[in-house]
Computed example of a mutant assay.
Amino acid sequence: MNTTPEQTTRQLLIKVPQVTIIFWIIKIAATTLGETGGDAVSMSMNLGYLVGTGIFAAIFAVAVTAQVRADRFHPFLYWSTIIATTTVGTTLADFADRSLGIGYAGGASLLFALLMGSLLVWYRSMGSVSVDTVRTRKAEVFYWVTIMFSQTLGTALGDWTADTAGLGYTGGALVFTILLAGVVAAYYWTRISRTALFWTAFILTRPLGAVVGDLLDKPVSAGGFGLNRYSASAVLFSFILLGLYALPQRAAERNH
């Protein structure tokens, strides 16, 4: 079937990928990379959370500007922007939790309020927060701001679960895996809003990545595997690249 000019234009404007199992696999890898990469800069390089946040915020600004200005879906650009949000989210959450002294509970509460506020303003402004409606620059800005808040919140939740709640990295990973399994079950066996389930899963994959990243690079004495942060980040980055090359993604389609 031939596509009409209107359909072609609509396809060009939708610059987010279809939500498939591949999307979630790459998302978890990207969030884990955000944890190891963020820690590599702020801790291994001894630059601190504030400087690390400044570096990654600049990278995020460049990436999201390029993403918003793009005329069509580019998988590598999209996922580069996701990685930028998750690295800045790591250092920003650590700065809020530790350097500002508000703790994991305070940081998570603040970030949750910011995330809910972002979704509320987006909904009132655009009438929907569904991914398949992200086809204007205004919607894209809301989309990326919301993602940035969700990535930062996820880091705080992961640290809170592993440290304050005393579950450790393995226990934290198990908790968030079970919660995500519950979201999958709700998707297949309930009529809960697919948009609500998407954002719930999107948020939960970040703390899962946070605790898995910490599990990989924290010292054995602290309950981790003691892997080099640079090596772990390189392996995760290579996995993402391989996934994007081997399993091409398409832009999301508008639901009617």
Score class of each variant (00 low, 15 high):
T4K: 05
T8I: 14
T8E: 15
T9I: 11
T9C: 00
R10P: 00
L12K: 13
P17H: 04
T20R: 15
I22L: 12
I22Q: 13
F23V: 08
F23N: 08
I26N: 09
I26K: 10
I28T: 12
D39G: 02
V41L: 14
S44F: 00
T53N: 07
F56N: 02
A58Y: 02
A58E: 02
A58M: 09
A61D: 08
V62P: 01
V62M: 12
V64T: 12
Q67R: 01
V68L: 13
A70D: 13
A70K: 09
D71R: 13
R72N: 07
R72E: 14
L77D: 05
Y78H: 05
W79S: 04
W79A: 00
S80N: 07
T81A: 14
T85S: 14
T87M: 15
T90F: 02
L100H: 02
G101W: 00
G101S: 10
A105L: 15
G106D: 06
G107C: 15
A108R: 03
S109P: 01
F112V: 09
L114V: 11
S118E: 03
S118N: 14
L120I: 11
R124D: 09
S125D: 15
M126H: 13
G127N: 09
G127D: 10
V131A: 13
D132N: 14
D132T: 05
D132Q: 08
T133D: 06
T133M: 04
V134D: 02
T136V: 08
T136E: 09
T136Q: 10
T136N: 10
T136A: 10
T136D: 10
R137P: 06
A139S: 15
V141E: 01
F142D: 03
F142A: 07
F142G: 10
Y143R: 02
Y143A: 09
W144L: 09
T146A: 15
I147N: 08
L153C: 13
T155Y: 07
A156E: 08
A156P: 00
L157G: 02
G158H: 13
D159C: 05
A162T: 00
T164N: 13
A165G: 00
L167G: 01
G168V: 05
Y169Q: 03
G172A: 04
A173D: 04
F176S: 06
T177S: 15
I178N: 03
L180P: 04
G182C: 06
V183Y: 05
A186W: 01
Y188D: 09
T190N: 07
I192P: 01
S193W: 00
L197F: 09
F198G: 05
F198H: 10
T200I: 07
I203A: 15
L204R: 01
T205H: 08
R206F: 08
R206W: 06
P207T: 12
P207C: 12
L208F: 07
L208V: 07
V211E: 04
D214M: 03
L215R: 05
D217T: 15
D217F: 07
K218F: 00
P219S: 07
V220P: 05
V220H: 12
V220R: 13
A222M: 14
G223L: 06
G224P: 10
G224W: 09
F225S: 11
F225W: 15
L227N: 11
R229C: 03
V235P: 04
V235D: 00
L242C: 06
L244V: 05
L244Y: 03
Q249S: 14
Q249N: 00
R250M: 11
A252Y: 01
E253S: 13
E253F: 04
R254L: 15
